[in-house]
Design a binder for these strands. Structure first.
Length: 484
RNA sequence: GUCCCCAUGGUCAAGCGGUUAAGACAUCGCCCUUUCAAGGCGGUAUCACGGGUUCGAUUCCCGUUGGGGACGCCA
């Protein structure tokens, strides 16, 4: 049974990189009918917050990455919060201590900092001197009685090498001599990440550890702990990092990295997932638009890339547009309404009373918006009483000054006579304008600007029909009063 | 500095010893067209470098260069 996990620490929102790590784990679980476990790594009490936790869970739910074990749902290997597992960790610390595989270290932070600086100035890698490894029982006892705080370090045999069996990278070999007796429990009795992650993964029966490449160099340390405790070492898969445009690890300075913000900005989860899945993985290089079921079906760690992948917002935007165009109009309307409301273009009453109108507007914009949020900036003239002209729109009026009056008088007359049904209006406008000697390009542009205040938008006759008789006439009147 | 990872167009990427080196985004033309999109057609653009191995290397090996990551009593 495949058991994989995603283990965020609740010290911020869900990062894009974290989301992809979660996604790959989830995909692997779903692909192999395994379990996807969510574990919260909240051992850093200073930085962990409730808000972060709920934000992360919210984003995971938005993405549809449901977990089989973890917060809310529980499971047979809980608790799934590390802060609730302290006694378990301490038990294993004691075990290592009693088996003489670890030892207490009384060195102070200052002493270590000194050594670290010295190593740096001598241009060599810092390694703990092992000073406390050979303390006598008496010395240890004495120091303990003097209440000198201590950390616990694991003993690392400097001989030989440690091999990581990585499903993506193959065998990665580290000489044990590069390791030192690293700390596994802090002076405040809190075990450190490299230790607890092993305990949890082992106890939770994790079979495959799928995580970012930045953890690759932690792995030999963790393997030593597995072995010291007699646990089975799981398989590893270190996925390439998501990079910013400058090819360094994607971070805040590259722009927005929070999933929550992508949601807020009007990205669809299925588009986001689709894009993320294709960063560092591709089934054949051919498919780009894939449903989640297809992705699950095709997913394999063997086809995951080794090199990092730059996050391309432009392509994500394009893909989001593809998904928006594919949405059925009822769903899209529901998705867009919050954005129209947010922009104060519609009220709750409008949603009740003018739902069909709203839907019609959204249908007209469907092929133009790349994010849900764009609906409001592109559609404001459908909802506002008074429109303002863009610079380009003013230019159009300026350019066709001598024809404006004629154009809108004809328009007014037609609307009053035949209404706004688009085929009828179009037919009459074309005929009457030709009679008046006004070219299509001129009257089309002028009418558009008069009705919408902008030079871009849906088909003109769709606009007329959707706006309706009253709105059209009102805007014609306003133009007559203001601009002529 | 040490250790580790990586290397096909601007970006995501197919390729796994013999190909005119796919496809997508972006970009640039053209078409469609009442604007903007969408769509259609076409173009520009890639195997980092140097050695091997081989009849033949983008592909295998070594090195160089370049990029990245990790070196915490953070996770």
């Amino acid at each position: 049974m495949v058991r994989v996990r995603f283990a965020p620490s609740p010290t911020g929102y869900l990062h894009i990189g974290g989301a992809r790590t979660a996604l790959f784990n989830w995909l692997y679980a779903r692909k192999h009918n395994g379990k996807f476990i969510l574990r919260i790594e909240d051992t850093d009490k200073e930085r962990s917050t409730e808000e972060s936790l709920s934000e992360i869970l919210k984003s995971l739910r938005w993405l549809g990455l449901n977990w089989d074990e973890g917060p809310d749902v529980g499971g047979p290997y809980g608790p799934y919060f590390q802060s609730q597992r302290l006694d378990i960790y301490l038990k294993y610390i004691d075990k290592l201590l009693s088996e003489n595989k670890a030892y207490k270290c009384f060195c102070t932070k200052e002493e270590l900092e000194e050594e670290r600086k010295k190593a740096e100035s001598e241009k060599r890698a810092f390694k703990y001197s092992g000073k406390c490894k050979n303390l006598t029982e008496y010395e240890i006892k004495q120091k303990e009685e003097s209440k000198i705080p201590y950390t616990v370090r694991i003993k690392i045999n400097q001989e030989g090498e440690t091999v990581i069996k990585d499903k993506i990278r193959g065998d990665v070999v580290f000489q044990n001599s590069v390791l030192d007796d690293f700390i596994i429990m802090r002076a405040d009795k809190m075990p450190v990440y490299n230790f607890v992650v092993v305990i949890d993964d082992a106890l939770m029966q994790i079979t495959h550890v799928i995580r970012g490449e930045d953890h690759l160099s932690n792995t030999p340390k963790q393997i030593h702990i597995y072995k010291a405790l007699g646990f089975t070492v799981p398989e590893f898969a270190h996925i390439p990092l998501i990079l910013g445009p400058d090819k360094s690890k994607l971070s805040k300075r590259h722009g927005e990295t929070s999933c929550g913000v992508y949601e807020k900005n009007g990205f669809l989860p299925e588009a986001f997932i689709n894009y993320l899945a294709l960063l560092g993985w591709s089934p054949d290089g051919e498919k780009t638009e894939m449903t989640i079921d297809e992705i699950i079906k095709e997913f394999s760690l063997e086809k995951v890339h080794k090199a990092g992948a730059i996050f391309d917002n432009q392509k994500l935007l394009w893909l989001n547009g593809v998904y928006i165009r594919k949405k059925n109009i009822n769903e899209l309307t529901e998705l867009c309404i919050p954005y129209l409301k947010e922009a104060n273009l519609i009220t709750d009453d409008d949603i009740k009373n003018r739902y069909e109108y709203i839907k019609k507007v959204i249908a007209l914009q469907q092929e133009k918006i790349k994010t849900l949020s764009e609906i409001s900036s592109l559609s404001d003239y459908f909802f506002k009483d008074n429109i303002t002209l863009t610079e380009d729109a003013k230019k159009i009026l300026e350019k066709n000054k001598q024809d404006i009056k004629k154009v809108i008088e004809i328009l007014k007359k037609i609307i009053l006579e035949v209404g706004v049904e688009k085929t009828k209006v179009e037919e009459r406008i074309r005929i009457d304008m030709e009679k008046a000697g006004i070219k299509p390009k001129v009257f089309m542009h002028v009418i558009r600007v008069v009705l919408t205040g902008t030079t871009i938008g849906p088909g003109l006759f769709d606009i007329i029909e959707t706006l309706g008789k009253d709105m059209c006439l009102k805007r014609v009147e306003n133009t007559m009063v203001n601009d002529l």
